[in-house]
Simulated assay, not measured.
Amino acid sequence: PTPRVVRPFIAPPSPYAAGHRGLDLAGHSGQQVLAVAAGVITHAGSLAGRGTVTIEHPGGIRSTYEPLAIDTGIWRGRAISTGQVIGTLGVGGSHCAPAVCLHLGALRQGTSGQWSYVEPLFLLLAGEIVLLPSP
């Protein structure tokens, strides 16, 4: 996908184990970061010194973005449209240093209500994914 993936998602073997809970996407400092889909902001602020935004989308999916300089019009509870600017890519806190990248995460809400990280690549690919029953 565009932008280029520089580090893939690596699912942890258990919820608290090490892993890479998102994709790192190539970018440059000051580049605009766009919402992958319409939804409602559930978090916009600083976590561990990095600007982060979380958007909840219909169907029990959340997308997460970091590190950002968060746009002034972005706040918790605000509705966001697909492709809307949510901030600019920041240098501070990027774990791709000395390069700059956006860490894009995806979470899916299970039937128990628990949120789990999933492979976020589907957020960047065009088209609809349909699961068919197995024989």
Rank of each mutant, 00 (worst) to 15 (best):
A35V: 01
P133M: 03
S63H: 08
E119F: 06
P133D: 11
P67E: 09
A79H: 12
T64A: 13
C101D: 06
V33H: 10
V36P: 09
A79N: 12
Q114C: 01
R78S: 12
R108Q: 15
P13A: 12
G59M: 03
R108I: 01
A97K: 10
L121Q: 13
L132D: 12
I74R: 06
T72H: 14
C101Q: 05
Q84E: 15
T54W: 08
H57K: 07
Y117S: 14
I129H: 14
G113N: 08
A26M: 03
L131P: 01
T88C: 05
L47K: 10
A48H: 00
T88Q: 15
P3S: 07
L124V: 06
G45N: 01
T88L: 03
Y65H: 08
R7D: 11
R4P: 06
S81W: 08
T72C: 02
S112H: 04
R7W: 04
L131T: 13
E66P: 00
P67R: 03
P1W: 11
P3N: 07
G49I: 00
V5K: 05
G93T: 02
G22K: 06
G60W: 04
H95S: 02
L107Q: 15
P12L: 05
T54R: 09
I70A: 06
I70W: 02
V100P: 07
V33E: 09
R78Q: 14
W115C: 04
S81R: 14
A48T: 00
Y117D: 13
P3F: 05
Q84D: 11
R78G: 10
G27T: 04
T54F: 12
